[in-house]
Computed example of a mutant assay.
Amino acid sequence: MHHSSLNIHANAGAPLYLHHRSLSVKAAAVIIGVLLLTLSSYLTIPMVPVPITLQTLVVTLIGALYGWRLGALTVVLWLAAGALGLPVLANGGSGLAKFTGPTAGYLFAFPLAAATLGWLAANGWGGARIARAFGAMLLGTALCLFVGGAWLAYTIGFEKAWLNGVMPFLVGGLIKSLVGALVLVALSATRSNKVAVA
């Protein structure tokens, strides 16, 4: 009984288990996360009014891998860098205007998505089971689309928001969710050498 309890505790949390690491390791992880988020912002497919980027994939992965606190903090610091004028947002964008324009809803959704994925990963949805990992990634992606789409609907109307800010991203969201789930499964498998199907 005592041995099982130890195993459950050891396997709790996000796949990187950063909550057990030193402050310097956590700081390095945050810096790496901000850099990855910035890189994902430059890999875009131009669309109007919102470009397709790899941001959602990286945001959800950071949340799942870092845990909800550190994941959300990493995303918030990245957004803060953009607000302060550093060219870290989509297509090198920056400035406070990004947080009031059409993309604001997506930006504000990112920390929520990271925190959600971190919580799910800590509760058995972090990659040990393929279906759960995909479901978690899909939920994070859907959260970004819902909040982003809601803000867009407020600014340009529901129909335009759906046609321009949600519908074009559904297939890409599914693909990115699957890719993210496979990453989580691969990382989980390296630790446990066993992956369940559901």
Rank of each mutant, 00 (worst) to 15 (best):
T116L: 14
W119V: 15
G148C: 14
Y106M: 03
G135P: 05
A104K: 05
C144Q: 12
N123I: 13
R132W: 12
A104W: 07
G127N: 08
G127F: 05
G148Y: 10
Y154C: 14
T141N: 12
L143Y: 00
M137A: 08
G105S: 10
P111W: 04
W151M: 08
P111L: 01
R129Q: 13
F146G: 05
G127V: 07
F146D: 02
L143N: 00
G101L: 06
L107F: 11
I130K: 09
L152K: 03
G101S: 15
L145T: 01
V147Q: 14
L120W: 11
A136F: 05
L145M: 14
A115E: 11
L143S: 00
R129W: 07
G140K: 03
R132L: 13
G101W: 12
L138D: 00
G140M: 06
R132H: 13
A131T: 14
L120S: 09
G148T: 09
M137N: 12
F110Q: 06
L117P: 06
G140N: 09
L117S: 02
P111F: 05
G126K: 04
F134S: 01
L112T: 01
G149Y: 13
A128Q: 15
G127K: 06
L112N: 00
T141F: 02
W119R: 10
L120A: 13
T116D: 07
W151K: 10
G148N: 14
A113N: 02
P111E: 01
T103Y: 10
A142F: 04
W151V: 07
A113I: 02
C144W: 00
W125Y: 15
A104L: 08
L152G: 00
A121E: 07
R129E: 11
W125M: 11
F108R: 06
M137S: 09
I130S: 09
A121Y: 13
W125E: 02
Y106R: 04
V147K: 09
G126N: 07
L145E: 06
T103P: 05
A122P: 10
L107T: 01
Y106Q: 02
L112V: 08
A109E: 00
L145D: 03
G126S: 10
Y106E: 01
A122W: 03
I130E: 02
L145V: 09
W125P: 07
N123H: 15
T116V: 11
W151E: 06
A121C: 10
A142W: 00
A131M: 12
F110N: 03
A115Y: 12
M137W: 05
L107S: 09
A142N: 01
G126I: 02
A104V: 02
Y106K: 03
T141S: 07
G135M: 09
I130V: 15
A133N: 06
F134R: 04
A133I: 04
A113Q: 06
W125C: 09
W125F: 15
L120I: 09
M137E: 05
A133M: 10
G140C: 12
G140T: 08
G140Q: 07
A142S: 10
L107Q: 08
G124E: 01
A128C: 09
Y106T: 03
T100L: 15
L117T: 01
A128G: 15
G118A: 11
W125S: 05
T103M: 04
T103C: 05
A142R: 00
G135N: 09
G124Q: 03
A114D: 01
